[in-house]
Amino acid sequence: MSDGNIPATRTEIPVEVVGNRQGMFGGRGTGDTSGFGGLVAPIVLPGPSSRPYGGWFDEVADELEGALEEQGLDPADAIEKTVIDRGELTFHVRREHLLQVSRTLRDDPALRFELCLGVSGVHYLSDPGRELHAVYHLRSITHTRLIRVEVTAPDADPHIPSVVSVYPTNDWHEREAYDFFGIVFDGHPALTRIMMPDDWLGHPQRKDYPLGGIPVEYKGAQIPAPDQRRSYT
């Protein structure tokens, strides 16, 4: 084996661990009878990709980074990492810079992501400091492209700037994410609950909010609500 085949230095790839999977079946309590109940495997989100990304991904990334630089912003500062996974391009943007990045994505002639497809909240309960993710999908009708922008916020400080001033369509989407996840979108014109009644307590789609089902009673038997049953994940 020649020396050229051995990588010079091992670069540490920062990975995002969002939890652990235990045992063979992911069963909790006494569910795992396989004898492998002690196995622990981390759940790792797809890590950052390195250049070249391939296809039009490089073009978009170059344009975005160039445009941000022109505005006096260090791309490495604004964009935490760029992930290519399953043929989809994701920019992980630091929340301070979300507004500027989204405005650039919309207005730069080479980018032109005119259509925002809303925001989807995801709650990673065991990812300390980055529990709440807000995931935006942007579509460019001009260039027929689709990208994803992901922003995180800790549970202790669930603030993310609102992009309603850039994409008015996100008005209701952000209200929905607030209602279900408790993400506070700063700068939203009227951040109120949209789906749940106004006096509802809690944010029902967070992972620490129970499903809220009731046990169903049959003759002589009770079936617990789906989240209370013994089950394998």
């Binding site: 029902p204 909010y209 129970p210 499903l211 809220g212 089902g213 009731i214 169903v216 789906p226």
Partner: peptide, 13 residues
């Protein structure tokens, strides 16, 4: 009649 398949926080059972 019973909440059906939606045994959750949102639906009256």
């Amino acid at each position: 009649s019973s909440g059906g398949m939606f045994n959750n926080y949102a639906i009256v059972q």
